[in-house]
Computed example of a mutant assay.
Amino acid sequence: MQIARVLSLLLDYPHDGLLAAQADIDAIIADSPLSAERKQALAAFVQRRFAGQLMDWQSEYDGLFERGRSLSLLLFEHVHGESRDRGQAMVNLMNQYKEAGLEIGVRELPDYIPLYLEFLSTQGEENLRLGLEEVAHILALLAARLEQRDSDYAAVMHALLELSGVSVDLGDVREQIANEKRDDTKEELDKVWEEEMVKFGPDSQSDGCSSGVNKPSETQRKDQYVPINWADITDAAQTEAQRGN
């Protein structure tokens, strides 16, 4: 589904090529199955972001998603944290990509949300919905935290939630995170640097993962989706609350 691909691009690091595709992005949003409210919010996001300076956008992106863990775009960060289960989950997801014929080529981990969305966008509408349904609790958590920071990126998370078809009580999620301690301060970031980086797989020094080198063939595109076991929103919130204490 094209709208999933667009949302993947909007959540990825902004670059010149993205700006050049604004007309196509606007058209895909307008033709998407999203509600009028979601289309309007996404269109406003695109207009605002694309009208500004790219370097300012990149700087804000880094500040949101690259500082601290609470807004990490790595799915398993919100499920497994630094536990050993994270490594096996990475391997399982990578195998799922390979079974669907997706060869990873850029430096990203397999649970990077834009990469996961790119994969789902090739798997047919029903598999896209199922894939988003499994991570809806994480998307809701990110949406609420982005709202808390007055970031318009919340519009992208809300669009993904709508595509998932899952009804999430965002009021409950907002209440859960109301008293969360910010993890993007200098003091909290210093604590993170003191921790050992998580590695997985036999070659932890490899270039990581990526999207976009080889795409699935037509025979591989659909019905290849195998559900991944994800925690629910309560588990995710509790895990991060425990890490913050």
Rank of each mutant, 00 (worst) to 15 (best):
D111I: 06
A44L: 12
R129G: 10
S121C: 09
L19F: 15
Q53E: 13
S211H: 02
G244H: 11
F119L: 08
V91I: 15
N214M: 14
V166Y: 00
Y61R: 07
A237I: 15
R5A: 14
S217M: 11
E196S: 12
F65L: 07
S121I: 02
P110W: 02
N214C: 13
E218M: 07
A36K: 11
N179C: 03
E162R: 01
L163W: 03
R107D: 13
A4E: 10
Y153N: 03
I228D: 10
E66F: 08
E196R: 13
D235Y: 04
L64T: 10
L93Q: 04
R67N: 13
E162T: 11
D31W: 00
N229S: 13
L161Y: 03
M157I: 03
D62M: 13
N214L: 15
E82H: 05
P114A: 05
P110Y: 02
A20G: 00
S167R: 11
R182S: 12
R38S: 15
L128R: 01
R86H: 02
V226R: 14
M1T: 11
I3F: 01
A144F: 01
V79W: 12
D152H: 05
T219K: 15
F50C: 05
I113H: 00
L141H: 05
Q148Y: 03
K191S: 10
M55L: 15
D190W: 02
K98F: 03
S35C: 06
G81N: 04
D31V: 02
V135P: 07
G17N: 10
R49D: 13
V226M: 12
D24S: 10
E218N: 04
D152G: 06
L146R: 02
L7G: 06
G124A: 01
R107Q: 15
P227M: 02
R38D: 11
E194M: 09
L120C: 05
I28F: 07
E194L: 13
E108Y: 01
I25E: 07
V168P: 01
D62G: 12
L19C: 04
D203H: 11
Q40W: 00
D24H: 03
K181Y: 02
A44T: 13
S204A: 15
P216L: 06
E125S: 12
D26T: 12
G17F: 03
G208D: 00
E134A: 15
E108V: 08
S83T: 12
G68L: 05
I113Y: 05
L11Q: 03
E118I: 02
D31R: 07
D56A: 11
W193N: 06
D235K: 12
A27T: 08
S204C: 07
L139A: 08
A159D: 09
R5E: 14
E108Q: 09
S211N: 08
A237S: 13
L9K: 10
D111A: 04
R67G: 00
P227G: 02
L115M: 12
P110T: 09
V166Q: 14
L102Y: 07
T185D: 11
W57S: 11
A155D: 11
A89D: 06
L42Q: 04
F200R: 06
L42S: 08
S217W: 02
S210G: 15
A178C: 00
G212P: 01
Q205P: 00
S8K: 01
D152P: 01
N95W: 01
D207T: 08
Y225I: 06
D152E: 14
R5V: 00
R145E: 14
G105C: 12
D207H: 06
E188C: 07
E66C: 12
Y97S: 07
A36N: 09
